[in-house]
Design a protein around this nucleic acid. Sequence first.
DNA 1: ACCCCTGTTCGGCG
DNA 2: CCGCCGAACAGGGG
Length: 265
Amino acid sequence: MPELAEVEFFRKQWDPGLGQKVVTVQLHPRKRIFRGTDPRKIVESLPGRRFLRSYARGKRMLFEFTGGNWIGLHLGMTGKLRTEPAGFRPEKHDHFVLQQTRQALVFRDARLFGRVRFHQGKSEPAWWRLGGPEIASAQFDRHFLDAFLNRHSRAPIKAVVLMQDGFSGIGNWMADEILWRAGIEPSVRAGELSARHRARLLRETRFVASEALRVIGPAFADPPPDWLIHQKWKRAGVCPRHKSRLRKGTLGGRTTAWCPLCQKK
DNA sequence: ACCCCTGTTCGGCG
DNA sequence: CCGCCGAACAGGGG
């Protein structure tokens, strides 16, 4: 589920807890979402701390608490954040819950591909600094894109658009949406993209990211009806422009839909 | 029953 | 050594 805009939506679901203390932490310490971190430290450190603010970068989120306590969250395939009334009893897949006086902040993740990290220190954790530039930032420009495409010149462009170091926050549906709008056939090797296609790739990546944030970020509304996403999961999906059948295949290990009329090598 | 999956990581291999 | 690809992870839904 979660790419850039959905991540931003879920980040805000914990806003009702801002400024308030964590009373208790409920978690399942053996679950895979805690791989690489010691969940007992979270249970020991977070109670009594106030939730100060949160950040989103691509598909990653960071939650800051007083006393230099930081929680990093990644939603994986099926992670969701929500708020429940005080006294909430965690259900089967609610693996990480921060109980506050007035509400409970809940991380649910059925498939456990998501991840919870913990950091203590005055400033942000080192792993938060890593990763590619935000698509909305000035650093995501023609120069950066050229270098990234050339570094992965032998990979199909679809696989490259899914790489988080270059296309921060882009996931499978946004990648197909971008390539369809840019008129690029998804199996083309990144290094073989023409200057014209590179310019369109940059423009449409920015467009799809900003539009998705605008439409989905605040309320999880549907993208406009003429977007490819509404067609790509249908068995008989059609190109929104030509109304002809989309082609389906696997690229970069992921299901891919494209329109042979719109998208060329 | 069986197949599919909006993500990431890791081992194999060219 | 670099980098791509498929498998694995785990569970719910069609």
